[in-house]
Simulated assay, not measured.
Amino acid sequence: MARRPTIKDIARQAGVSESAVSFALNNRPGVSQDTRARIRRVAEELGWQPNSAARALSGEQSGAVGLVLARPAHTLGVESFFLQLVSGIQEVLAAGRIALLFQVVEDLDAECAVYRRWWAERRVDGVVVVDPRTDDPRPALLEQLALPAVTVGETGPVSVSSASSDSAPSDSVVPALSAVRADDAGAMAQVLDHLHGLGHRRIAHVAGMPGLAHTERRITSLRAEARRLGLGPGQVRSVTTDYSDAEGAEATRRILAEPEPPTAIVYDNDVMAVAGVAVASELGIPVPGGLSVVAWDDSALCRVTRPRLTALVRDTAGFGRLAAEELLALLAGGRPRSRESELPRLEPRESTAPPPAAY
């Protein structure tokens, strides 16, 4: 097995003492500039890297940040959102030679246990927190641990008109964690305006997991936009799922079996939207002639399905980059703040059309 190079190896190769190597590699005084440059050149030639565990024990940063997903594992393999989000996070971290420690757990209690273990072991310098809950124990825990964190989304209601996306809040409302958020209300307004403009008056929403802050925000936004357009409570409805194709298909079957089924369905991800189109086909309901379908997140799946799916297009990788940038700003001593990602854009395609004439 190949042996990792050590400070002793560097000292021998450079012809200096081990203490001189330590001074040079840790940017401490005690060696000349020429000696420092020679030591660093030898370290690079030997492929030496600092030991992250030793650095953490000495009080230095570990050079890693963490991401924990508390979702059913079977829902992650088919959904493109998290893959794109992680790719954006990794793009920023890789530029700074920072590692991403990733773990999937079964529930929120297990996620909190991971944070406690990482903190005790000094495994990470900070964390990116996803899927904020309406009643979320993680912000208080992370604040107690003094573990820097950025949430992707926010746990409470957000007033977009009164918040500045690029400035820190006043001292009276400084958040415990930084956050990057999406304008779910603005996105839902685009979807409802599109469907209402086509003539749809009975609209269903197949939502994601109950208890997630963005699920509740989308459900609330649907109702608010429906009221704005003059639609009554009986004309719009939401049902929650686990984001999987199986639950998306089952929810679609139940909805379409109602005495007065909707003429349009909005799905909270691309996988459920494609499953919904398949169910409609099984039931002999043409899309879009008998049912219009909208996917909340665009993906290659939406674009290759026939008919191609109308979807909300957003830069999910950019969302991840923004989260990583905010976490690095915290680690550099910045103040927690809240920032908003770019508003998604609705891309009308072949899966939406006016409702049937009989409607």
Rank of each mutant, 00 (worst) to 15 (best):
D270Y: 03
S17V: 05
V68C: 11
E340I: 12
D268I: 09
E143I: 00
S221A: 15
V294R: 07
R202T: 07
V65D: 01
A20S: 15
R308C: 09
S221P: 10
D171T: 09
V174A: 12
T241F: 12
S165P: 08
S341L: 06
I89Q: 03
L142K: 04
E250D: 15
L322A: 13
Q49W: 01
D270K: 06
G276F: 07
A70C: 04
S52D: 08
R218H: 02
V92K: 14
D34L: 11
P354F: 09
D34N: 12
G248N: 03
G156R: 14
A249K: 01
Y359S: 14
W118K: 01
P307H: 11
T252G: 03
D136Y: 10
A300P: 00
R117A: 12
A70H: 05
D131L: 09
A332C: 04
Q90A: 12
I39A: 03
T316N: 06
R335E: 09
A64D: 03
A176N: 04
P336H: 05
R3A: 13
V180Q: 03
S281I: 00
N27F: 07
L283Q: 11
Q90F: 00
V105Y: 04
R237I: 03
V313Q: 13
N27I: 01
E260A: 13
A149Y: 10
P5V: 11
I219W: 00
A353K: 09
L67I: 09
D131K: 08
D268F: 15
T352R: 08
S299L: 03
